[in-house]
Each structure stands twice: as structure tokens, then as C-alpha cells.
């Protein structure tokens, strides 16, 4: 018997919502990829339209930052969303990446564009080590230990001469004229964001990802069902550290210094968590949607109110409101209602 979908035949130009009502919308699959490909192409092409963009550097800086947050909250989601282990200290990996690349540049003059992957690997190594210890507990105790990890690194970098102490290390600027300076950072963050999304996608669609979801659902049952829970959890921790570390390496270079309070503050971790939860934790597209949305709200409230304090209040309120009223986040809620646009259904 031929499936309904095949019988109807491909109708890429038909984005009718009724089409998506189907249980797990097979939808117009091709149309989904068209949209995504168009978005990616547009993102790659953006810097080429220099004459058409009035505040070019601002737009690229903004773009790079949004992409960075996309990468970081997508990575956080692998541990926090898929496996259900909430880390509130994930910016520690950003700092490790930033410092590794920063030190290599400051002392040895090697460009962070080359060493960023090393920063990511250092973050992975820390993820393994920290996971080995902190994942002996679960639930609240685990969350608490991630906060402690963050503060340990803040203290250590604050007091470590080689790393410049609390003042940090100033980094030489990229030898480019001011007008082109933001372009390489933009492309680097774009690649990082795509890499992070790809990683999250691959994890979500693997046996490993299934195992993580089982752990989130019921760890004891997962264990009984033969999921090597400890190995999986530690691996998830390590994998979720990688792109955060790479992003940190590029970010430090882009602001031309590394400093403890830039990375090792809970506010940065809080952002990742907020973005993933508002977007929909445990979904691949959720953190992406959340990052774009939260960053936009941040920028707008900064313009509107100026004060960062107000910004903080808004963030806290949003987190509380989403948890109470839409615990599944935007993507999760839409999917439950069968209203999720096909081009955002990546699970």
C-alpha cells in the first residue's frame, strides 16, 4: 500500500497549515529544507551587502553575538535539555576556551581563529573531569556543584598572575582596518553556531540521544533498560562543553581581552539556561529560537530603558512566567499544539 503522503506527491509550494496537522508532520519536507537553506545562505551573504547596511559594524557585532548565544544555548541543551541535568555553571567552559586561546595569543602570538578548537577541547577535558565528580549526584546537588565549579574558576583566575589576575589579559587586535574588523568574527560565530546546531541535531537523532532522553525521563529505568547512564551523562557533559569553549575563544578575541568577570559569572550561564528554556529545552530548535528572541528583547529593553537592572528584572520574570505557564517553551508548546512550523521541527 502506498502511503498517503507519497500518493499526494510532492507539493513543495503548499505550506497549508492543514498539512502540518498530521501527527508527526511529515509535512512538505522539501519546503522545510528550502527555508533553512535560504536562512543559512542569507546569513552567509549578509556581510556582502555592506553598502546597504547603515551601521555595518553594529549589525555584524549583533549578528555574531546572537550566533554565539545560539551556539551556547544549543550546547547547554544537550546536557540540560536532553539529559535533564541542569547546569548553572556552563559559562565556565566559555571561560576555559577564552583563556586557552587568550594565553596562546598573548604569550605565543597564535591566532585564536586557529586555536579556538583547542579551547573547545580544553573545555571538553574539563567537562569530563567535572562530570566525573559532579555527576555522582543528581538533581539539586548536581546543579549546586556546577555553580561551585564556576565560582572556583572565578577565584582561581582572579588570583593567578600568569592569567593576569582580576584585570585579565589584553589581547592584540586583529590586523584589519576598522571597517572590516567585524567580518571574521561574524563568520567564525556563524560556523560555530552551525556546528553546535549540527552537533545537537546529531545527538538528538542518535542512540546516544535516545539514552539521554531516557535518563531525563527516569534514570533508574534507563539504567535497568541497559543505558550506560554514567558514561552517557559524563559524555553529554563533555560534548555540551565543546562549542561553548570554541565560542569563548572567539568571543575573547573579539572584545580584545580575557578577564574573569567576562566569563565566570553566573549571569552568562543564566542566559544560556533562559534561552534554552524559553525556546523549549530538549528540542533542537528551541535554544535557537530562544537565543534569537531573548537577545532581541535584551537589545530592545536596553534601548528603551537604558538601565541593565531593568533588563535583569525582565529576564527573571520571563523565566518564572515560562516555567509556570509554558514549561515546554515555545517550540515544545507549539509542537504539542501541532502548530509548529515544519521548518522548525528538527526533532
Amino acid at each position: 500500500m502506498i502511503e498517503d503522503r507519497a500518493a499526494v506527491g510532492p507539493e513543495p509550494s503548499d505550506p497549508e497549515p492543514e498539512q502540518q496537522e498530521a501527527q508527526r508532520p511529515p509535512g512538505p519536507a522539501r519546503y522545510r529544507w528550502y527555508v533553512l537553506a535560504a536562512v543559512v545562505v542569507a546569513l552567509f551573504a549578509l556581510p556582502l551587502f555592506r553598502p546597504m547596511i547603515s551601521s555595518y559594524n553594529y549589525v555584524l557585532t549583533l549578528g555574531a553575538l546572537i550566533l554565539m548565544w545560539v551556539a551556547m544555548s544549543s550546547s547547554w541543551n544537550i546536557l540540560g535539555g536532553f539529559a535533564g541535568y541542569i547546569s548553572l555553571g556552563h559559562s565556565v567552559f566559555m571561560g576555559v576556551g577564552g583563556y586557552v586561546a587568550g594565553v596562546l595569543l598573548y604569550y605565543h602570538g597564535i591566532s585564536p581563529f586557529l586555536t579556538a578548537p583547542l579551547g573547545g577541547l580544553a573545555a571538553v577535558a574539563l567537562g569530563f573531569l567535572a562530570g566525573f565528580i559532579t555527576l555522582r549526584t543528581r538533581g539539586p546537588a548536581f546543579i549546586i556543584s556546577t555553580i561551585a565549579l564556576l565560582f572556583m574558576f572565578l577565584l582561581m583566575t582572579d588570583n593567578f598572575e600568569y592569567l593576569g589576575g582580576a584585570a585579565g589579559l589584553p589581547l592584540p587586535a586583529l590586523p584589519l582596518s576598522q571597517e572590516w574588523l567585524r567580518v571574521p568574527f561574524y563568520y567564525a560565530m556563524l560556523l560555530i553556531a552551525l556546528g553546535a546546531i549540527w552537533t545537537a541535531y546529531r545527538v538528538a537523532h542518535s542512540k546516544f540521544g535516545m539514552g539521554l532522553r531516557a535518563i531525563a525521563e527516569d534514570e533508574v529505568k534507563a539504567e535497568v533498560a541497559g543505558v550506560p547512564t554514567r558514561l552517557y551523562k559524563i559524555s553529554a557533559f563533555a560534548i555540551s562543553a565543546f562549542w561553548v569553549g570554541v565560542a569563548g575563544a572567539i568571543y575573547g578575541y573579539s572584545i580584545a581581552f580575557v578577564r574573569p568577570t567576562v566569563f565566570f559569572t553566573i549571569a552568562i550561564s543564566a542566559q544560556m539556561v533562559l534561552m534554552a528554556i524559553i525556546g523549549g529545552k530538549g528540542t533542537v530548535a528551541g535554544p535557537v529560537v530562544g537565543a534569537v528572541l531573548i537577545y532581541a528583547i535584551n537589545e530592545l529593553s536596553l534601548v528603551a530603558f537604558g538601565a541593565t537592572e531593568f533588563n535583569i528584572v525582565i529576564q527573571g520574570t520571563m523565566l518564572v512566567a515560562v516555567l509556570l505557564f509554558f514549561p515546554l517553551g515555545i517550540v515544545g508548546t507549539l509542537r504539542k499544539m501541532n502548530r509548529l512550523p515544519a521548518f522548525l521541527n528538527w526533532d
Partner: peptide, 19 residues
């Protein structure tokens, strides 16, 4: 887990309001 995240949000709110 919910209590941790909820109180995390409350903490951020209180911090912002105090600031």
C-alpha cells in the same frame, strides 16, 4: 528541578529589583 529553575528566576528578579 522546577524549584531550582523557579528560584533561579526569582533570584534574578530580586537582584534586578534591588539594583
Amino acid at each position: 528541578e522546577m524549584t531550582v529553575l523557579l528560584t533561579f528566576g526569582i533570584a534574578i528578579m530580586v537582584e534586578g529589583l534591588l539594583g
